[in-house]
């Protein structure tokens, strides 16, 4: 089992109706991602990058084909089961961070842990470790409006890793950041992959961001081109 890929996608298609037209953002796509790999997905807008990311993260379900993440075949799971699976196996990093403005950095990071049975003390230990890992121990009480864009994204990454998921999915994580902050975030993601064994799937338009990944794949019209 150790040789089997962590993510295994076989002949996956995704289509949906938009008015009278049928849109197919992904068509018969197959892909394998080993455990601990940092994978970058590139491609023009509408190429199906985010759709693929959402399928891997269990936010959406394919129309056909099979999709395995770890030991679990996601295509067999219902909506509620996918939500439960996401809560413990996936950390999602958004382009625009999407922190809750009324909560402090600490409280934002705590959100995924509220779904667990961890005690307040255990939650604190984990949050402090996550804050330490992203280098924001001194910003725990700050609200999102009191943080820079780079710091907000670090908090979002801490929120994504605090419950120790095996898979991190990142949708343009540096898309809204200046170069310096972007490099710092990419270094952090690279560390999470190499030192903490996280499997990372990142969607990006930025070739420099893709350089930080172990492998880069290109999508065009719902198909892998290289």
């Amino acid at each position: 089992m150790s040789d089997s890929p962590f993510i295994k996608i076989e002949q996956v298609s995704k289509s949906f109706q938009k008015g009278k037209a049928t849109i197919t953002p992904l068509e018969n796509l197959s892909l394998e991602v080993p455990r601990g790999e940092f994978l970058a997905l590139m491609g023009p807008s509408g190429s199906g990058k985010t759709t693929l990311l959402n399928l891997v993260a269990g936010i959406d379900s394919p129309t056909s084909g099979s999709l395995w993440v770890g030991e679990r075949e996601l295509t067999t799971l219902k909506r509620g089961q996918l939500t439960k699976w996401r809560a413990s196996h996936v950390g999602y990093i958004f382009q625009l961070y999407h922190l809750v403005p009324i909560l402090s950095a600490y409280e934002n990071i705590e959100l995924p842990l509220l779904l667990t049975s961890l005690s307040k003390r255990d939650r604190r230990t984990r949050i402090e470790a996550a804050l330490d890992l992203v280098g924001l121990s001194n910003r725990a009480t700050h609200r999102p409006t009191e943080l820079s864009g780079g710091q907000e994204q670090r908090v979002a990454i801490a929120r994504a890793i605090v419950h120790d998921p095996e898979l991190l999915v990142a949708d343009e994580p540096t898309g809204d950041l200046d170069r310096e902050s972007a490099d710092s975030i990419l270094q952090l993601l690279s560390r999470l992959s190499k030192e903490h064994g996280k499997t990372i799937v990142m969607v990006t338009h930025d070739p420099r961001a893709a350089e930080a990944a172990d492998r880069t794949l290109h999508l065009e019209k719902g198909k892998l081109t290289r």
Binding site: A57, T83, K84, S88, L111, R159
Partner: peptide, 16 residues
């Protein structure tokens, strides 16, 4: 609406 979707992405169920 969007924030609720973020919560769901994190793992908050419809029930939660």
């Amino acid at each position: 609406t969007r924030e609720t979707a973020i919560f769901q992405t994190i793992g908050f169920s419809r029930y939660r």
